[in-house]
Amino acid sequence: MTRYILQRLALLPLLMVIYSFVIFVIIQAPPGDFLTAYVATLASSGSSISQEQIEAWRAQYGLDQPMIVQYWLWVKHLAHGNFGLSLEYQRPNAELIGEQIGLTLALALFSFFLTWAIAIPAGIYSATHPRSIGDHILTVVNYVGVATPNFMLALILMWVAFAYFDVSVTGLYSPEYADAPWSWGKFLDLMAHLWLPALVLGIAGTARLSRIMRANLLDELNKPYVVTARAKGMKEWRLVLRYPVRLAFNPLISTIGWYLPMLFSGSLIVATVMNLPNIGPLLLRALVNQDMYLAGGILLIYSFLTIVGTLLSDVLLALVDPRIRVEG
């Protein structure tokens, strides 16, 4: 068990090296380099910068050197926690990302738990009441949920709230808490705002998970061990929760491997539409403005979160399934 986890952990740095290289190749692909763009931005805003400063940066990032050297310098800076400087915001990238990463994680994780809290009871109900009216309604909701793109749902909700209830559902805080220091009140205010974007973000996943839960549970309910348990004289609902639900759960845990990453990436769209503090919109602006080190830093964080998500699901699966625990 410990060996299995260590093996998976050892893979993490290797993957990060591969990703960082791919990301670097992508972000430096557009023509022109970061400094030329930077000088141009400064010139257009009327300010200027000394030639020495430009030369110093050019040397620091190795911009006159081949790509592989530039990559090496970038990685070296990253290793020291230096994510470089944002040309658009004129601030260190680490600071910009740091401000938003907390709420980015909060949104994705909150959405994750919301999804599970809805999808699993729904799936259990559907599987234990197949072809009932409730099952049919859930099926329709699931199909529509999967078919509706995140941003579309966000748009519809925002429009309905604005046009019919005259409320704004964008942002994560009420105005009075926006710049206030952390307090219990601010936390409650955050929760009051967070659930709607979390729901929007999680709707497609909720639909997919409850379909998976339904299918798995239907399969498990037909297995002989259910008959054995029934023949013991167990109460039906206790039996269902203890045996088939428990077994139907395992494949669901392996979905964490793609679902958490999907939430991290998906939050980009929802946050952009609903104007939430999140590294997603930051990435979008950075890409459009060719703020390459900021974009690179954020992409690297997305990759890291994705790998951690996959790792988490592997470890959890090993924890709950004795068949993997004993043999792995």
Binding site: P224, Y225, T228, A229, K232, G233, L247, N250, P322
Partner: peptide, 19 residues
């Protein structure tokens, strides 16, 4: 069930929960 009438099922492999 189980108390007065008990069942020995066909496939002992599948008749126990594996977890």
């Amino acid at each position: 069930r189980g108390a007065e009438i008990a069942l020995i099922p066909q496939e002992p492999m599948a008749a126990f929960s594996p977890v």
